[in-house]
């Protein structure tokens, strides 16, 4: 699964620490998701989507063979 989080953070001028505070998780979690080492839970994905004002599926891109 690919993620556009880094790109969206840059767009909205947020660093990992700020995004972590807005999504009520640790900076470590944001970093892991961004490095594609952790697939977030539905709840965290929804919180991230709300911060960026984007649908979940446009932030987390699931490949066809992963479905």
């Amino acid at each position: 699964m690919k993620t556009r989080m880094r790109e969206l953070r840059a767009r909205d001028g947020l660093n990992q620490t700020q995004l972590a505070k807005l999504t009520k998780v640790s900076r470590q979690t944001i970093s892991l998701i961004e490095r594609e080492e952790l697939i977030p839970s539905l709840l965290i994905a929804a919180r991230i989507a709300r911060v960026f004002n984007e649908p979940v599926e446009s932030i987390f891109l699931i490949e066809e063979d992963e479905l």
């Binding site: 998780v25 979690t29 944001i30 892991l32 977030p40 965290i44």
Partner: peptide, 8 residues
């Protein structure tokens, strides 16, 4: 701990 911390 959140899910990232638990994962680590």
């Amino acid at each position: 701990s959140d899910e990232g911390e638990k994962h680590v």
